[in-house]
Design a protein around this nucleic acid. Structure first.
Lengths: 166, 166
DNA sequence: CAGTATCCCATATGATACTG
DNA sequence: CAGTATCATATGGGATACTG
């Protein structure tokens, strides 16, 4: 990938695409990115750990991490083990941290609708209390709203034309 | 794709993969699936409408819809226009309906962290009141929980070994 | 180790032509 | 129209070898 091309990739994220779902997918919508984020959320910050846990090829992990850094989701943090040169860990930026909601939603949905034969796999819990958490729509003052009361708004408001017949 | 292969695809979804995030991604983790779901949530149920709105090639849309139907996310509903033969619309199953949480999370995240130059694009609103909604973690009794109190649990609990050194 | 560079392959994608 | 079939291409992904 040439520099020009890479620059274009970064640019396209902010630019053209009106729908924020699509923009998110440009960063997270590929096989490994969400799983890499999952690992970072689980606290695995080293290249080798992530690679081993995911079983991802190292070249790919390298590429993906770069892309995530470019997108501002992940940041590199220098560290130095005794007698080694400086290396980098990968940490979540605020953006990456907030992607937890997406991961939570994916996890919840998978648990509910693609259950394993083995049984339910996981839950999200509250630190300390251990309460099981779910991901839901809530009002500004924190009241959960049932799904059928949620109205998704078109990202690109339908072009206002005189009539409906185009 | 042979039938045997196709069957295997369906099977693999429920089987091996322990992490529910990964299982979800098997169904939704590819470029078009979330966008197709988005269209269905927006109420666009006809093949041609979806194709035109997304700019997706018809063969791909066909394939994707089939996969979503296979996964139980989408269902086909027969309808008949005057003088035409029976066609099918595509509707959300309960599973597909609940994927709205994922879409909402993606949208919210994109709006916050990949803003367009043009400005914020969209929001999720409550029907009737028009209140802006957000997607968040909540306790069972509906209390929102700040992100830093959320603990994601490993889908596949780390293999219990005697030591850490493998 | 923590990555990077190469090479190869599978597959998602897209354009287009075709059918009931 | 609502799809299906075919074909060409790009790209993500995987294996592996390599470097500091």
């Amino acid at each position: 990938m040439s520099d020009a091309e890479r620059a274009r990739v970064v640019t396209t994220i902010d630019d053209g695409v009106a729908c924020s779902i699509e923009r998110s997918l440009m960063v997270l919508g590929e096989r490994w990115s969400p799983l890499i984020l999952r690992e970072l959320h689980y606290g695995n910050r080293r290249f080798g750990d992530i690679r081993d846990r995911l079983g991802i090829a190292s070249n790919l992990l390298s590429k993906r991490l770069k892309a995530l850094v470019d997108a501002g989701v992940v940041e590199t943090l220098p560290y130095r083990d005794e007698g080694s040169r400086v290396r980098f860990e990968y940490g979540l930026t605020e953006s990456g941290f907030e992607a937890l909601v997406i991961l939570g939603a994916l996890q919840q949905w998978g648990d509910r609708h693609l259950p394993r034969d083995i049984g339910p796999s996981v839950v999200r819990r509250r630190r300390g209390t251990g309460e099981e958490l779910r991901v839901a729509f809530v009002t500004d003052d924190g009241m959960p709203v049932p799904l059928d009361e949620v109205r998704m708004q078109l990202a690109e408001p339908p072009v206002e034309r005189s009539g409906t017949s185009s």
